[in-house]
Nucleic acid binder design. Structure first.
Lengths: 158, 158
DNA sequence: ATCGCAATGATATATTGTATCTTCGGCTCG
DNA sequence: CGAGCCGAAGATACAATATATCATTGCGAT
């Protein structure tokens, strides 16, 4: 209901292609290392920490990739809207529609760790306005909800 | 506008008293150590990390207080609504009205680090409803806005 | 007394995040 | 072509944040 505009939701190669296009449009280089990290991030089933990604990419490339390299690249990804940081999980998640800017709402399951995201510009807009009214500028809203997802609730029902 | 109900906003000893009452009503013990940590947290001008508090309390008591003790106590404080964790800052902030439960919105300045909080139950209620609609339960909303506060914006105006 | 329990202490370690300096590879400019 | 520049990535060290485990203390109940 909330978000009525059409997103292009990408996955797999289509997502990587879209990401690369958006990334290069932002003036950044799509290097092999960056592609590897993006792939690892897209393949993750839940928010991944920089160290998770370092390990994954170390495995997939056979070469040791240090955490600081991953952090550097994640920073660029976040700046270019290819990825988001989930603050309450100290982890990162791929942005499945890198072509449009959004304030996202993340729902993060305390039990299984999976995160889903909700777009609701009306709601995030209200949060922005509240901050602006308080004199804040350069806003970066962090809107997340920790809780127990539907799947885990079922499973737990003893 | 938003929050029309009357808060009792406490500070100093009045806050400590209110906190102690709420804490004991929750079935917890108001020990000297907990009082020290609460005092340090109340005195802080910005969200304080567990390690900050450990150092402060070590200084004020003369005895070495380890981080894990602080974490334990902060966990109890958060559970009893005496304090909040600011996820995007990995830090804690005192709750100035421990007697009423709220989802808070924190505004955190990237420049000076200070945090203010906004109550807007309508807004936080919408976030809750969005999560519930997605099947989430046991909700714990994390609503924060990083940005540059009014004071810092002025100062920076070159 | 001593048992049980909650709070705290002590210690070790895991996880997350930065800083600094070096190396590599591609590019331009002369 | 070679010298110099520059962004990306590697290597290393370290800082900051968070948790795990076991020991100790103090206090109330039996």
């Amino acid at each position: 209901m909330a978000s009525a505009h059409n997103h292009l939701l990408h996955e797999g190669q289509s997502l990587a292609d879209a990401a690369q296009r958006a990334f290069e449009r932002a003036g950044e280089q799509w290097t092999p290392m960056r592609a590897e990290i993006f792939a690892a991030l897209s393949a993750a089933t839940k928010p991944a920490s920089a160290y998770d990604l370092a390990e994954t990419v170390s495995g997939s490339t056979g070469r040791r990739v240090a955490a600081n390299s991953v952090y550097r690249i994640l920073d660029v990804f976040v700046a270019a809207n290819l990825a988001r940081r989930v603050e309450s999980a100290n982890a990162y998640i791929v942005n499945a529609h890198p072509e449009c800017e959004h304030d996202c709402i993340f729902l993060v399951c305390d039990s299984c760790g999976q995160a889903s995201h909700v777009d609701n510009d009306e709601l995030t807009g209200s949060v922005r306005r509240a901050a602006e009214k308080a004199g804040f500028t350069n806003l970066r809203p962090v809107i997340e909800v920790r809780g127990c997802c539907a799947q885990c609730s079922e499973g737990d029902a003893a």
